[in-house]
Structure formats: C-alpha cells, structure tokens
Amino acid sequence: MDGVILYDKPAGVTSHDVVARVRRSHDRIRTGHAGTLDPFATGLLLVLLGRATRAQQFLMGLPKSYETVARLGATSTTGDPEGEITETGRVPPDPPALPTGVVRQRPPAYSAIKIDGERAYARARRGEAVEMPEREVTVTRFEQLWRRGDTAGFAIDCSSGTYVRSLILELGDAYCLELRRTAIGPFHVADADPERIVPLGDVLARVLPSLHLDPESARRAGHGAPVPGEIPGGGEHVLLTDDQGPIAVAVPRDGGLLKPTVGFRA
C-alpha cells in the first residue's frame, strides 16, 4: 500500500475530493497528494498512500507541465471560468509576448495560499481586498500552440509554485478557459491509472539519487542512525535502500556520514 497513484483528475472536483475517494477505496489508509489542482482544471495528480505521504516534500517541488486554453478579449475575476466574466474585445497580439526564465508574478486572489492563517480565496469570496505577495518562479517553456478567433492554446513548463492563471492574465485581456497538467517531473498523465499503485521505492528512485546499503548499515539507517556514505553525483538528499526496498531519505553530515531524516521502515 506504500506508493503513489498517478491520477488523471477530471474537471469539477477538488484535489481533496480525489484523495478522499482514493482513501475510501483503500481501507482508509493514510492518503495525501503532492500538488493541488483547481476544481476546473484536469490532469495529473500524485496521490500518496501509506508511508509515501512522508515523501510529499520531495514530490511537491518537482517542475510541472501544463496545456491551457485561454479565452482572449475578456477578463475573469478569478482568472478562470468560475469568475465574473467581462467582455472587453481587447485581444492580445498574435503572437503574444511570452516571458520565460525567472518571472515575478503575483498569485491570484482566488488561490489556496494562506494569508494570516486563512486561504486567500475564502477572504476574496467574502469581498475582502486581498494583497497577494509577489514571488519569483521559473518558466522554461511558454509557447502558443494555436489560435482560433478568441481562443488560443499554450504549452507551459515551469517550476513548482507557478500560477498558470497569472501567466495568462499577464497577456492582457485573457483568462484560463481550460487547464490541464500533463506532467510532474518524470511522471506523465499519459501513464495515469487510478487502479495502479506505483511502489514508493520506484517513485523515489526517479526523483532522488539512491544508495544501496549493506545489511548492517541498513539496520542502523532503519533506526535513524547515521551511516557512512556519499550522495552519488552530489545533491542535498539521497534515498537509502536495501534488498527490501526504501529505508529512508538522508542528508549529508560531516565526517562522510549520511543522516536519515525521513524514514520508511518504522
């Protein structure tokens, strides 16, 4: 049961709805996810089962890929079809200026970011003015795929934490009509299967360097004790494994040691 489901979320349900659905179908096992999708959005959601919930931090930060359809010549109070729509007729140029690299953006007020302990969208829905802090994100691909009349399709590859709604908003008078997440790091929506649990060890081996331990070192690491070793290729984290599978994620310490910080055996 310790693993990840690659789930193709449909439109009209929340990420929490998907997690609850999976939890019910797997005997109420501990369940979570690695990256929220808005209710109107579709696409890849990583649903974590059992001890895989302990690895959430290593999956949350993976880069994301999206395909979006933008409505041009109109604005939305939420940046998506659920807001109040205003027709302006002002259409962004073709082709539009599409920024890549490090981009400063302001997340939409209707987002799940917490402001003073409360979700921003809850404040915005009460009519409160919400001042969202700017953030820096990295966009490695922002490409217009097609344009037909007042709609256009875009492909976007970006760092974790990027708001696609904000990228489309910055085009001018435009908002996200459709949004689909096609990939999270090395995981693709084309491989989604709600009935298949990808083993935790297989998932982490695709996102972290790994080090196979001898039996004594594996026993020590399983109890949280430091073990000798180096991270292959460098880096901040390494997956410690033995013949039974994943033991822990560890970080380097002085003296050529690796200290387990997230364990999967106990």
Rank of each mutant, 00 (worst) to 15 (best):
D202M: 14
G12E: 01
T261G: 04
R196H: 11
D254A: 15
F264R: 05
P186N: 00
P63W: 09
L240T: 02
D38N: 04
A34P: 02
R219F: 14
I5M: 04
P63A: 02
S15V: 07
M1D: 02
R106Y: 14
T78V: 05
R220S: 13
C158I: 08
V238G: 08
V91Y: 08
R51A: 10
I247L: 11
G89Y: 12
D94K: 10
D80L: 10
R30D: 01
R253A: 13
V198P: 05
R90Y: 13
K259G: 04
L44R: 00
T14V: 05
T78Q: 09
R265T: 07
E134C: 03
G12A: 11
L240W: 09
V22T: 05
F40P: 01
T53L: 07
Y110K: 07
P107Q: 00
P226G: 09
E178F: 02
R219T: 08
T75F: 08
Q144V: 15
T241E: 08
D2C: 01
R54F: 03
T88H: 00
Y175W: 10
A183V: 14
G233D: 01
A112G: 00
I168K: 08
I231H: 02
D214N: 11
H223S: 13
R71D: 02
V189K: 03
G172E: 06
L62I: 05
S210F: 12
G234W: 06
A152K: 05
L257T: 04
T77G: 13
G233L: 04
G127P: 10
Q56C: 11
A74P: 11
E82L: 08
H223I: 12
L239D: 06
P108L: 02
R51F: 04
V13E: 00
R90D: 13
V22P: 06
A190Y: 15
L48F: 06
P194I: 10
F142M: 09
I156D: 06
R24W: 01
A190D: 15
P10G: 00
G3E: 01
D116E: 10
R119P: 07
V227Q: 11
L240F: 08
Q105L: 11
G101E: 05
Y66T: 07
W146E: 12
P194Y: 06
D2T: 06
G79M: 05
P10K: 02
E230F: 15
V13G: 00
T75E: 00
H33S: 03
A112K: 15
D254F: 12
L257N: 01
Q57M: 13
V103F: 11
M132S: 10
L49N: 09
G101L: 00
E143I: 15
V91I: 15
V207F: 14
D17L: 01
P209R: 14
P232H: 05
C158S: 04
Y66I: 11
E178C: 06
A152N: 11
A120F: 12
V203K: 04
A129M: 10
V22H: 07
G101D: 07
V251C: 00
R180W: 12
L44E: 01
R141S: 12
R253Q: 14
S25G: 12
E118C: 12
K9T: 01
G79L: 10
I168Y: 04
D27K: 14
